[in-house]
Design a protein around this nucleic acid. Sequence first.
DNA 1: CATGAATGAGTGTTCATTCAT
DNA 2: GATGAATGAACACTCATTCAT
Lengths: 227, 227, 227, 227
Amino acid sequence: MATLTKLIRPLSEDAQGKRERRKEARPGELLDAALDLFVEKGFAATRAEEVAARAGVSKGTLFLYFPSKEELFKAVVRENISGRFSEWNEEFATFEGSTLEMVRYCIQVWWERIGATRASGITKLIISEARNFPDLAAFYQQEVIRPGTDLVRRILQRGVARGEFRKDLDLDYAVFSLISPMVHLIMMKHSLAPCCPQDYPLDIERYLKSIADNLLHGLCVRREAAA
Amino acid sequence: MATLTKLIRPLSEDAQGKRERRKEARPGELLDAALDLFVEKGFAATRAEEVAARAGVSKGTLFLYFPSKEELFKAVVRENISGRFSEWNEEFATFEGSTLEMVRYCIQVWWERIGATRASGITKLIISEARNFPDLAAFYQQEVIRPGTDLVRRILQRGVARGEFRKDLDLDYAVFSLISPMVHLIMMKHSLAPCCPQDYPLDIERYLKSIADNLLHGLCVRREAAA
Amino acid sequence: MATLTKLIRPLSEDAQGKRERRKEARPGELLDAALDLFVEKGFAATRAEEVAARAGVSKGTLFLYFPSKEELFKAVVRENISGRFSEWNEEFATFEGSTLEMVRYCIQVWWERIGATRASGITKLIISEARNFPDLAAFYQQEVIRPGTDLVRRILQRGVARGEFRKDLDLDYAVFSLISPMVHLIMMKHSLAPCCPQDYPLDIERYLKSIADNLLHGLCVRREAAA
Amino acid sequence: MATLTKLIRPLSEDAQGKRERRKEARPGELLDAALDLFVEKGFAATRAEEVAARAGVSKGTLFLYFPSKEELFKAVVRENISGRFSEWNEEFATFEGSTLEMVRYCIQVWWERIGATRASGITKLIISEARNFPDLAAFYQQEVIRPGTDLVRRILQRGVARGEFRKDLDLDYAVFSLISPMVHLIMMKHSLAPCCPQDYPLDIERYLKSIADNLLHGLCVRREAAA
DNA sequence: CATGAATGAGTGTTCATTCAT
DNA sequence: GATGAATGAACACTCATTCAT
């Protein structure tokens, strides 16, 4: 059982670990360290020296690769915003099964490739710091949110087109019904769950199954009883 | 049409008479100003002097009422965590209509009393700063999240008991299907929406209706075997 | 047995005490409170509000009587520098007994009228703050040190003139032999003794007797053995 | 003629190359600067930036070596409390001459090694700030005052044992007859003398000789019954 | 007169950033 | 390149002083 609180990485994982670092790896290690710290403590509360220390280099070295803490932050975000949407679009464009299966697959794949990985921290980061980095927020909106929303929208549209989903879906807004539980899960994972582990013994499989079930079939027993 | 980006409060415009003695009003004004700024910029990036200025007083005055910036933050959170759940529990315990109506009413009422008000900023604040203020996060978890979750769970249970909702609901997790769109809306309202207004021309009524519809009836046309 | 550490006044002696204060007494009470606090914590570390609180008035009232903290300090010093030297000079000018008796009497009287009283705090105060208040130091030098030294010098001279004291006394410097133990006693009383009570179980009578004995008769068994 | 007011050090005159890397030297330079300033103006009235400036570095550098102004103060005191007493004890334990010579030698050596040096400032510092730093005062009491007092006591005892000093000396208190003029001299040097130079044209040799003479032989012409 | 709420200059401390080595 | 000592701008917080009531 994959519990939410088990997913938080321990902080000092590789503080000592690999001493035989290749020089070319430096920026990557700095970005790695920075991602963890920014997600955990926020941009302002993260000290440049701490990032450097966790990456196993000196403070000065950090500024050798990134001209400022702000640029480091931006690099962290850019680095972790995968432009894999074309690949994913392809994947979903050629999907063969029912749209119901597609939705479940979509959720599963999102969890495996984003939700469960450190990439999920980026979402937390963006949402927390958006107001202080509006250009980054816009960038994220454009590179991730919009393509993601479009992808989801296309899936839903396919369902409607194929007669699987309700004709009267308000497509522009129905995407939130699918996206919200993912965003919410990320937020929990990176904020409250680490603070109150006993309150978040989430079984991810059940979580994902439950939201997929409810999303597809609704809470109600039958369809005709509109509220 | 209530658009998300219209909901951000403009700067305070008063700050009239200086040196006016009004001890009673000060703390509230400071908490008000602090809430706005903390939500907008985060705890660390908000300067004490700025909070004071927005409240129309000098820096020194802030520290007359709150011993430190951290205590101000805690006061902001505590102040805005109303213990209104007993009242709400009452309201829902004596609800007369169908549980479908109840869910719609719940969403509507949540928006009016929380989502649309500045109280929603607290959720953003907590989620953004939880790791830096774990005690506050725990406090919020206990005072808000847990009672809120319980309330929602009771509603769902009522629906199952009355035969309105599916028997096979995974109650512990179904609550997220209702809560996630609310949390997500709050996050959007306080982070990306102010940065990319053109991307968030959200019509709240449609948003709320859509998630309620989908939550209750699912995306699918009819209830066949789950995919 | 009068032990040094018993002589330190408890801080909150009259915090509540006499509520029926006469208005005319205010400045005096402020000076009283200020003296204690300045002696205990030094000028800089003493807060005006604390002085006011101990005197049982508000912060504003203090500044009603003294234009600034610095003026308060100066007033404290001036107030406690008794111009009683003319009286004392009289007393010693008409002294009838031997100069040995005179020296012992001088020490005793100093202790009773200065050393044992709160006036002794002034010396501690002046010495500690002299560099920050050079004009006050000069004032003290002129009003207290110089007359005091002169008085002592006259006593010693009387002893020499009457053949009681050694002819070869270096009068200008011999005064220190009498004054130093007094200054030292004051310093101990107001600094180290309150911090290390167990190290300063001083029996004042023995202290005064010992220094008088040694001053008058020296440590040596007989006079001719010059070192 | 060594006059007391000539002994005050002028401001530092170096501060040459900036950004010179010399980690080893910094703490010492800062402690040096801090000692001077703390002695002159007291702890509270000395600004951290001023200490740094006098040491020829920036404010930030000070906090690189000392975590706080208070720790700087403590370091200043500790640094200057040399544990040289064992060496001195040795020196006096093996002293060959008369105890009269020993007393004169003791006074002379004290002046050369402590009184005339900046170490004397520590005594002034401790006495002025004891009430604000009780733990440091206790530390000083234990590390300096007690060993010093013991050393003096042993000298006096030697004199009594060898029949050089009076049998009826009250040893516990007689130590003050020797120590007080030293403490007093330090106090004058660091407080009133710099303010009223014309009042303190002290000839140290005469001062030391006078107190030694009077201490050993007393003021009186011959040893008659104590008054 | 007395109050105490309000002020703002001043200071300790932090930390991103620089640069001599 | 890499380092880490040094910097100084920025900010939290204090407290003497003011002044409307």
